[in-house]
Amino acid sequence: MSSGAAIAALLRKELLLERRVPQVIPGMALFSVVTYVVFRFGLDRTSVEGSLAAGVLWVTLLFAAMLGANRLYVTDHEEGGFDGFLLAPVDRTTLFVAKALAFGLFLVLVEIVAVPAFAVLLLGPGLGAAEVGRLAAVLALADVGIAVIGTLVGALAIQTRARDLILPLIALPMLVPVIISAAKATAPVLAASGAGGLPGRWIALLCLYDLVFGLLAYAVFDFLLED
């Protein structure tokens, strides 16, 4: 049994579950929009731009991701999916890869709703094609990091008795470098003065983060599954 086929089977199951009972994606998208409303009154601003806009966007997406990560393993934990998977003659890291891919895909789908909603509801300056492209590049790189950490910490938290609490308490500090880089990189894109270039160092830092924690999570994930 090749790992590729196992990853495909696992990914297919994740997407099928989300299609049969849509929970994670609509929940995250709705949460994002509600959070914009909260920010509008919390900040008492009808529009934001520049670094404030980047902050609002990234805090919202990060918190929405925490919700998604919390749901990521619930069915497996409650309905014996872990045991079912462990009985199959496949490499255990395939579960990590499939979950991270599924979570990454969920994040992208949520952002397809949440980012335009942000542009309509709160963002002062409009977004041109160039800005959208740059924003998408940063979002993609940040999503990799969030998906990796969410998948790893989600698996860590699911076996604890206080998983809703443990997950954000570990994942949020761990994602600080991502939010630093992503917010710094998108602030010029969202500025009223027009699009600045993408600062290379933030892109490099995001890539480094994705690489380091991608490999690390891949290496340690096995230990979360065995008993």
Binding site: A5, K13, T75, E79, G80, G84, A88, P89
Partner: peptide, 26 residues
Amino acid sequence: LLTHEPLLYRDLSARDNLRFHARLHG
């Protein structure tokens, strides 16, 4: 292995569940 827990996803159909396991087992 057959335990008290069926090790099946409640929101998927019998056929989908079995297909998932068939693919995992190749």
